[in-house]
């Protein structure tokens, strides 16, 4: 798997996934949710951000199926990669854990943390924010 270099800004996000939570930041000034984790709000440039736990649900904004992938992912192809609009108002890239071809734009999905075949070390950065179809 990809070696994730967890840093002080990203650590709470990665730690949340180990306990099945999608942790995002919110800006105290403009109240908008923020992803990826930052030290400044990209909407209003305020620096007073706090963490909260999102519901973990969202809608597929776009989706593709790579038929060829590289390195450690080569043997996993084909698989589903999507951009998901999380209900709290941020967009994330994810792997949707379902049969390739079964997920369409507009489908509802929910968080399903997964190590994607990597070692489950219990360390932040070893479990990823994958999603699965709802229903």
């Amino acid at each position: 798997m990809v070696h994730i270099v967890v840093d002080p800004e990203s650590e709470p996000f990665w730690a949340g996934l180990l306990v099945g939570e999608l942790r995002l930041q919110r800006c105290a000034a403009c109240q908008r949710a923020i992803f990826y984790p930052r030290s400044v709000c990209p909407h209003c440039f305020a620096a007073d951000l706090s963490w909260f736990t999102a519901a973990g649900t969202g809608t597929v904004y776009s989706v593709t199926v790579p038929h060829r992938a590289f390195g450690e992912f080569a043997e996993q192809a084909p698989f589903i990669v999507a951009l998901v609009d999380v209900d709290e108002g941020v967009r994330m890239m994810t792997r949707v854990l379902a049969e390739p071809g079964s997920v369409q734009i507009g489908d509802r999905v929910r968080l399903a943390p997964n190590s994607l075949g990597g070692a489950e070390t219990g360390e932040p950065g070893s479990v990823y924010a994958c999603f699965e179809p709802v229903g």
């Binding site: 990809v2 593709t64 450690e72 994810t94 792997r95 990823y128 994958c130």
Partner: peptide, 25 residues
């Protein structure tokens, strides 16, 4: 292969081949 640092860490785990995967989306 190389480690995923800074803003890369949120996308790289999913194995999307780049740049083609982004243009496919």
């Amino acid at each position: 292969p190389r480690p995923a640092t800074l803003t890369e860490q949120y996308d790289r785990p999913f194995g999307l081949p780049l740049p083609v995967g982004a243009y496919a989306l």
